[in-house]
């Protein structure tokens, strides 16, 4: 299985990665190599095999619905690139 340039650009867009034309060439080659490597899975008969997502097959533990954390707004905002009035700032979304 290989992937064309357009395919790389589509995946990069879904993954929110801005690629240069040079990057696209490079990733076309490396992604095709990885996809070729994983292609051997398709020859294995897995009829009737259930997918395994957790090696211990545990089910998700639920906690009681109550507040357990204290408010640490300032500590969490301290790592952000831009904040104002206790909020994270992002570029304008709506004109």
């Amino acid at each position: 299985m290989s992937i064309d340039k357009q395919g790389v650009q589509k995946i990069a867009h879904l993954a929110r990665l801005a690629l240069t034309d040079e990057d696209v060439d490079q990733y076309q080659h490396s992604l095709s190599s990885v996809l070729a490597l994983v292609e051997q899975m398709q020859s294995v008969n897995t009829d009737g095999v259930e997918p395994l997502s957790n090696p211990l097959e545990m089910t998700q533990r639920l906690r009681e619905d109550k507040v357990t954390e204290e408010n640490r707004r300032d500590a969490f905002l301290a790592n952000a690139a831009q904040t104002e009035a206790g909020l994270f700032l992002v570029p304008k979304v709506i004109d």
Binding site: I3, L17, E50, S53
Partner: peptide, 29 residues
């Protein structure tokens, strides 16, 4: 970036069963 794109591809529409679910079945084997 390469691994993010491989994963994005494997989880994308039309490929999910052939890649991610297949890999999880092999994981059980």
């Amino acid at each position: 970036q390469k691994r993010i794109m491989v994963g994005t591809y494997a989880l994308s529409e039309g490929y999910y069963d052939a890649y991610y679910v297949k890999a999880q079945k092999i994981r059980r084997l």
